[in-house]
Design a protein around this nucleic acid. Structure first.
Lengths: 285, 285
DNA sequence: GATCGATTCTGGAAGATTTTGACAATTTTC
DNA sequence: GAAAATTGTCAAAATCTTCCAGAATCGATC
């Protein structure tokens, strides 16, 4: 807005003056162009954005550090979807209870064995397990109804990925209903990794009927059901009941769990694993 | 900008100067051609890409080291196992012909009407249609077997998205086989947007049996089948036949199509739409 | 709110590095 | 044995890296 060299009236040729564009917008333009074309050259970008090659290079350097693209001699390539989803920088940083979920995910991924067939429920904790599996290139047969998890696992050659299918709930990336639910009934997996909205007493609950039905189908299709819940989920129940604790084999949570809830669960016939969390700098004590 | 560009009075084309293309894109072009033809000679590639044989040789050497192809005397063969790993050049090869694909996609998106049920096949051209639909927030019932397209459409509240499900082919984001194929048989959509690897005469072909079967199911499930192919796809056939032109209702391509192929198609009972492309005077046909 | 110093951003230049096309000598293919 | 392809080398051109000096933004102080 500062009348900084308005360069006359926007002539056709670009004079050497500094262009009025904030770096973030320039980088967004670069990314947009790369998404359209897949690749772009330095000079080509400099002409299109009306900035100097030096600036473009620095922008690319910045974007590479962010993990959004890959640099090549003379230009840049869009980073493949796999690594893009690994980046915790984009939307993942805003995720709640990240440390707890990552700790749980690491423990679960450690417990998986090569060659097992594993059902991945939707949910951020299970997604974290999928990322860990992808990083270790663990050879699995994976079944998931989450588009996000499918995207992560699709680029891992060692993983045989099956998507049961279904309808996407608006605003989410979860598939529910037909044909996935029926298809799951014909499967028999070694392990199911299930998330839930709440565990109250010995009851697992969820907010939506569709989702609850899908989880029930997953639970029925696996020999060993692991429920992954961070400690904040031991709270008041949601609308629909998924199942009873007796229907599952193992619960994995973090050490922030309420001692009373812990005590109650210990009396049940379920393997209970409490993962310690290295908390960085929240309240300690 | 390039001083050598302007001295093209010697021949009618092929200025000897350095071509404006970053190496990565050139290698992607080589890969794309190899994927289409199966094999290619040095001179043939040099002519097509407008680079010198020396450069092509060095590119091939580079790609061999990357494991994407196999070198032979006089040319190169596609390495069949190259799909296992997701190298950037290979990823880029799928994004070529951007202008043509975008032009086709815009024309197709324009033809869609609110409330229609549309099957989205996998493929970059169809993905471009999905992006256009997302931008216009066109209310549709969408069915897709592509994780990438599903990801795009999942964010649009106006779109009712259904994923038939299936198994992911390694290195791709396409779902094939069960349960999606069976599920598609129970669907009846208004429109199917289908991509194909090649159209030869009146036969549509694909490289993989699984994919061909999925496309067949999609074609059978729609009242109006539109095949979306950029003009480079009118070439030698691939392994598996999908169907005959008589089984589809409409072909949408760009104006780079070979006149002979065009003439041949005009004689068939299929709606043929040729979309003009605004080419930026970059590469000659 | 205004001013001053610090930090960051931008464009450009010089030298190092990479890429490219051409050519001669050698190898391979038929 | 001839034609085509490959390898190695070399000079020109483009790009990359590293620096520098203005200019703008930011933060703090008044």
């Amino acid at each position: 807005m500062n009348s900084r060299e308005s360069q006359g009236d926007n002539g056709e040729e670009a004079p050497r003056g500094r262009v009025e564009m904030i770096p973030a917008k320039r980088r967004a333009l670069i990314l947009e162009r790369l998404r359209r074309e897949g690749a772009a050259g330095i000079q080509e970008l400099a002409d299109a954005i009306n900035a100097s090659p030096s600036t473009i290079r620095r922008d690319l350097e910045h974007l590479v550090k962010q993990g959004a693209l890959e640099r090549t001699h003379g230009g840049a390539l869009l980073q493949s979807t796999a690594r893009a989803t690994f980046e915790p920088d984009i939307a993942l940083a805003a995720q709640l209870r990240r440390e707890e979920k990552n700790a749980i995910a690491a423990a679960v991924a450690e417990a998986l064995r090569p060659g097992q067939s594993v059902i991945f429920d939707a949910g951020t904790t299970v997604l974290a397990v999928a990322r860990a599996v992808a990083n270790r290139r663990l050879p699995l047969t994976a079944v998931t109804n989450s588009l996000a998890i499918a995207q992560v696992l699709a680029d891992v050659p060692e993983v045989h990925l099956i998507v049961p299918g279904g309808t996407v709930r608006p605003g989410s990336t979860t598939l529910v209903g037909r044909p996935g639910e029926d298809f799951l009934r014909s499967l028999h997996a070694d392990i199911a990794l299930i998330g839930t909205h709440a565990i109250t007493g010995r009851t697992l609950t969820e907010t939506s009927l569709d989702v609850a039905a899908m989880k029930q189908a997953m639970i029925a299709a696996a020999r060993h059901v692991m429920v992954l819940v961070d400690s904040s989920k031991f709270t008041a129940p949601s609308f629909c009941t998924i199942c009873d604790v007796a229907d599952i084999q193992e619960i994995v949570t973090d050490d922030g769990i309420d001692p009373l809830a812990l005590e109650e669960l210990r009396r049940l016939k379920v393997v209970l694993r409490v993962v310690p969390v290295l908390r960085q700098d929240r309240h300690r004590g």
